[in-house]
Design a protein around this nucleic acid. Structure first.
Lengths: 120, 120
DNA sequence: TTGACACATTCCGATATAGGAATATAATGG
DNA sequence: CCATTATATTCCTATATCGGAATGTGTCAA
């Protein structure tokens, strides 16, 4: 097997920087492809391809308006991602970082005596 | 070019499901490789490889303890991810979803008259 | 019908991945 | 030094990716 498809998941889709840029732009409202491409300085085909991925994972919707296709953000798929990552919040808060550290050191000092623990 | 390296970014690293599982397990405290592999039902080499990626992006730390290597969570790298995704919060909240919808409809109804807009 | 836009898709090449199997590299206890 | 246990690394294959260039498709206007 290779890596999971970019279209397999919202999180895989947003792993690509250009797609993240697109989503950010779309927060400002719906937009046609060419405009997105210009603002982000990418070729039109690239924009289309990235938009396709985003559409397949449901992060954007399209609407035909004459010759143009207006892409619109649909961020609902980001919610689970936000929640999953949020499950680690207490681990990056400084207070807890230090607390955990402290507890760890205590344990070691008591259980194993002097420790060689290199912390790379 | 190919896809961005899994080691290029925390967000690329956590795009892989097995690595996410590892991180979740590590919330319970530091753990040796074999234990992680068993709990997650993956081969030891796989666990090692995934841990290597996680280490290279700084999401885990290692500590030698005898023959074992204890891996420990370092979630600080997830904070920027959480914040980036959080920037879309107002777009998935139902209230705002409906509000935006409403505004959009208003605009169209006024500017363009009857609309063919299929909303796929 | 023909042009002219706006956009989508296809074909190509270079690169990386995840998984499996096999092997190499510690560290520990005799 | 040897055997054993715990990890890491390498080799291999199948599969996807992104980007660029070229081409296809759809819509409008005269």
């Amino acid at each position: 097997m290779a890596r999971a498809a970019t279209t397999s998941d919202a999180i895989n889709a947003i792993a690509e920087p250009r797609r993240r840029e697109i989503l950010v732009l779309l927060r400002g409202g719906e937009r046609p492809v060419t405009e997105l491409a210009q603002d982000l300085r990418m070729s039109q085909p690239q924009a289309s391809k990235h938009l396709r991925v985003l559409r397949e994972v449901g992060l954007v919707r399209v609407r035909g308006a004459g010759k143009q296709r207006l892409y619109r953000l649909d961020a609902r798929g980001l919610r689970p991602v936000h929640e999953w990552v949020g499950g680690f919040e207490r681990f990056w808060s400084e207070r807890f970082e230090r607390l955990d550290e402290y507890v760890r050191e205590l344990k070691q000092a008591r259980q194993e005596g002097p420790d060689d623990g290199e912390d790379r």
